[in-house]
C-alpha cells in the first residue's frame, strides 16, 4: 500500500475517533490522535494480520489502553469490527469499552485487556516468549505512552525482554511529551528515554510518528536487529490533526462539544470517511 493511501486511512481514523468520543461525551482524544499514523502503518504495512483469528497473525498490545478509540478505529478500517459501533463507544452494553476489553470483542482484533497503565509490555513479553518457545514466526508489537513509562512495571518488563533476547518483540513509544498533569518533564522526568532503554539492553530507533517514510525506515531498521528487543521512539503531537487540541494537555481526557466537533471535522476535510460508518470499508 502506498503512503498516500495510508494518509487516507489515517484521516478516516481521525474522524471516526472524534465522532466516537464526541458521541460518548467522554474519552481520550489527545493520545488517540497522536497514535493514528503509527497504528495505520502497523496494521496496513508492518504487521502480518489479514484476519483477527488466524494463528499466524502478528499480535498488537495497546499498553496505553486509554487510546482505545485509535485501536477501534484501525480495527474498523481493517474490517474486523463494524463502523456501526462508532456511536456506542462507552455506552452501556457496548463492545467498545472505555478501555480495550478482550471479552467484549472476542476474536475481533483486541488481543489483550488493557487500560491500567504499565502492564502491556509484560503481556507482550509473555506472547513473545510463547512464540519463541514454539519456534513460531509471529511477532509482537506493543504501543506504550510516554507518561506510562513512569510505571515501574515497564522497567521490569524491559529487563525481561532483553534477558530473554526477544527479537520478535517491538515496542513503539507514542512520545507526545504530555501526560494528564502536564508536560512529561514537569510531572516526572523520563529523559533520556533512549539511553535508558539502551542501558536495559534494547535497540533504540527514533522516528517521526506522523511521517510514514520515517516510520517505514524505523520498522525496516528493526528487522535488521537480531537477538534483542527494539523500541521505536516515535515523536508525535498530542491531539494531532485537530488544531485546537494539538499539544494541549487539557485534551488528554476530554470530549469536544458540538462546536468543537464540527470545527475539528471541518479541519479533517473530505479525505477518507465522509460520514460515520461510511469509510473505506463502509
Amino acid at each position: 500500500m502506498k503512503h498516500d493511501d495510508l494518509k487516507v486511512i489515517a484521516n478516516s481514523m481521525r474522524k471516526n475517533i472524534l465522532t466516537m468520543i464526541y458521541k460518548a461525551k467522554s474519552g481520550h482524544p489527545g493520545g488517540s490522535l497522536s497514535a493514528v499514523e503509527i497504528m495505520t502503518y502497523l496494521y496496513f504495512k508492518e504487521m502480518n494480520i489479514d484476519s483477527p483469528t488466524d494463528d499466524k497473525r502478528d499480535r498488537f498490545v495497546l499498553s496505553k489502553g486509554h487510546g482505545a478509540p485509535v485501536l477501534y478505529a484501525v480495527l474498523m478500517e481493517k474490517g474486523f469490527i463494524g463502523k456501526d459501533l462508532i456511536p456506542t463507544l462507552r455506552q452501556v452494553d457496548t463492545k467498545l469499552q472505555g478501555h480495550p476489553d478482550i471479552k467484549k470483542l472476542p476474536g475481533a482484533g483486541v488481543e489483550a485487556s488493557t487500560g491500567s497503565l504499565g502492564q502491556g509490555l509484560s503481556i507482550a513479553n509473555g506472547m513473545a516468549l510463547a512464540f519463541k518457545l514454539d519456534k513460531k514466526p509471529n511477532r509482537v508489537f506493543a504501543l506504550l505512552g510516554d507518561g506510562e513509562i513512569n510505571e515501574g512495571m515497564i522497567w521490569e518488563a524491559a529487563m525481561l525482554a532483553s534477558h530473554y533476547r526477544l527479537d520478535n518483540l517491538t515496542a513503539i513509544l507514542d512520545h507526545n511529551g504530555l501526560q494528564i498533569d502536564g508536560k512529561n518533564e514537569d510531572v516526572m522526568t523520563i529523559t533520556p528515554i533512549d539511553k535508558k532503554f539502551e542501558a536495559f539492553g534494547w535497540h533504540v530507533i527514533h522516528a517521526d510518528g506522523h511521517c510514514f517514510e520515517s516510520l517505514e525506515k524505523a520498522f525496516e531498521e528493526r528487522k535488521t536487529i537480531k537477538g534483542k528487543p527494539a523500541i521505536i521512539i516515535a515523536d508525535t503531537t498530542k491531539g494531532k490533526g485537530c488544531s485546537f487540541m494539538e499539544n494541549q494537555a487539557g485534551w488528554h481526557g476530554k470530549a469536544p462539544n458540538e462546536d468543537e466537533y464540527c470545527r475539528a471535522m471541518e479541519e479533517m476535510g473530505d479525505i477518507g470517511d465522509k460520514s460515520e460508518g461510511g469509510g473505506l470499508n463502509g
Binding site: G126, M127, A157
Partner: peptide, 17 residues
C-alpha cells in the same frame, strides 16, 4: 527476577498465546 508485577503480566501474555 524479583519482579512480581511482571511475573503475573508475563504469565497473562503466555496464556493469551
Amino acid at each position: 527476577g524479583i519482579a512480581e508485577q511482571n511475573l503475573i503480566g508475563t504469565a497473562a501474555g503466555l496464556a493469551l498465546a
